[in-house]
């Protein structure tokens, strides 16, 4: 990734990942969901949660433990026989990357508890990947997708 084209495509991929991170905070009617943009320290301190469809959910949770000792984890029964709410947050103000890692770790933990495996998609068959800006941006967004979203 050293030539001019590769550099431009790299920027496009970066843009794709950043755009995805911003998507839920847009205020365009019909897109995004935030009623307001909270101060960063408030948003970063929120509990991130998944509901795991098991009423016997119990640790250890290696995916979460791998994020270090600053992570606080709690569990409580979900209403209506929906299983167990598994929540986690960092002490202090985590970086966006840390929050992204937490989202991805919670999703993997849920899959391991419910299905016993984390669903993979790569590598898989594909044809010629043309070097286009739109394609690079999409690849950046897809690479970032497990770490983004509403959690």
């Amino acid at each position: 990734m050293t030539g001019p084209l590769q550099q431009v495509l790299g920027k496009a991929a970066e843009f794709g990942g950043t755009a995805l991170a911003k998507l839920q905070h847009t205020h365009v009617p019909g897109v995004g969901q935030a009623s307001t943009t909270e101060p960063r320290e408030v948003a970063a301190a929120r509990w991130r949660a998944v509901t795991v469809f098991r009423d016997d959910l119990a640790g250890p949770f290696p995916e979460l433990e791998a994020l270090g000792p600053d992570l606080e984890v709690r569990m409580q029964p979900a209403p209506g026989d929906r299983g167990t709410e598994l929540s986690a947050r960092f002490h202090g103000t985590p970086t966006d990357e840390q929050v992204g890692e937490l989202r991805a770790a919670l999703r993997r933990t849920k899959q391991l508890a419910e299905v016993g495996e984390v669903l993979r998609v790569d590598p898989q068959p594909h044809g010629t990947r043309k070097a286009t800006l739109q394609g690079a941006a999409l690849e950046g967004a897809a690479a970032r997708a497990p770490k983004e979203g509403v959690l």
């Binding site: 839920q24 509901t51 469809f53 849920k110 899959q111 419910e114 998609v121 897809a142 970032r144 997708a145």
Partner: peptide, 26 residues
């Protein structure tokens, strides 16, 4: 195995999309 599948709402499966950030954002 997720709650949605237990309700037979299979296309809403919690675990079947490895790129949830895109559709959650949308």
């Amino acid at each position: 195995h997720c709650w949605y599948c237990s309700q037979e709402l299979y296309s809403l499966c919690d675990n079947g999309n490895p790129n949830p950030g895109i559709t959650e954002g949308l």
